[in-house]
Simulated scan of single mutants.
Amino acid sequence: MSTLYLLNKPFHTLCQFTDERHEGEPRKTLAPLIAVPNVYPAGRLDYDSEGLLLLTDDGALAHRITHPSQKLPKTYWVQVEGAPDDDALQRLRHGVTLKDGPTRPAKVRRIDTPEVPERIPPVRFRASIPTHWLEITISEGRNRQVRRMTAHVGLPTLRLIRVAIGPWTLEGIAPGEWRKETVHLPQQAASSSPNRQKRGPRQGPAGKRPVRGTQRPSS
């Protein structure tokens, strides 16, 4: 059995426990959010994106989650600038060609404005330009891929929230909060991983904090 931590990463928070930038104002990191020793993110989420981030201390589990061969679906709620017409949605569904090559087909649909906390700071408002929400599911993880895809079809992304990775979802986790789950990793998958050892210490600040959220069985 392996342990997985599901964190709702807030806007403008790095997916790491320290800010290695030596100039300018320090940026927010994961350190104040999850004081669990020796865990590290299984995958990334942009500094200016929000939502589900998975962390673990198990290299085999991290490999299974992040390796491209797994094609693990990732679902996002995306607030875009402009009105998405059927042509734009079909282009996203079939795949668009970006600078680093064509994307795989995506699942895309219009959704009503989701019930999510207001972002801090809030998304800019322009009365002359409407905004709409899309649900987009992709099975690859290029740098800033969803933002580049929507921009390619004339729909700049204003807010991006990752709500699911494979069977794990953001449901019931408030921004900045997390919950712990137990994952049963198949023996074959564990033995095929090139890195079965746990990584070295990487943890948040010292001091004890209560575990927030409840432990739930994995989906």
Rank of each mutant, 00 (worst) to 15 (best):
T150G: 05
P122F: 11
A60S: 11
V36N: 03
P130R: 07
L72C: 08
K180H: 14
S69V: 09
L55D: 00
M149V: 03
Q215S: 15
A127G: 09
H184Y: 11
G213W: 02
A60P: 01
S219V: 11
L92R: 08
F11M: 02
R21Y: 05
Q79Y: 04
K180D: 13
T113H: 13
F11V: 02
D112P: 10
R27I: 03
R27M: 09
Q197G: 15
P167M: 00
P37W: 07
P117K: 07
R179L: 10
G51M: 02
W178I: 08
P102K: 07
H22Y: 12
W178C: 03
Y76I: 04
L170P: 07
R44G: 01
R104G: 14
A88M: 06
L7H: 00
D87W: 10
E177M: 15
E140W: 03
D100Q: 04
V123W: 10
L6E: 05
R124L: 14
A127R: 15
E140M: 05
V163Q: 01
L14N: 01
G59K: 06
E23Q: 11
L134V: 00
E118C: 07
Y40S: 11
P201E: 10
W77V: 05
Y76G: 02
R179T: 09
Q90N: 10
H67N: 08
P68K: 03
W178P: 03
L30P: 01
P37C: 08
V146I: 15
A127C: 06
N38R: 13
H67M: 05
T157H: 00
P122S: 05
A190S: 13
V163G: 00
L54F: 08
G166D: 04
T3Q: 14
D48R: 13
Q203L: 14
G154N: 09
D19L: 03
R199Y: 13
S193W: 02
I173A: 08
H94C: 11
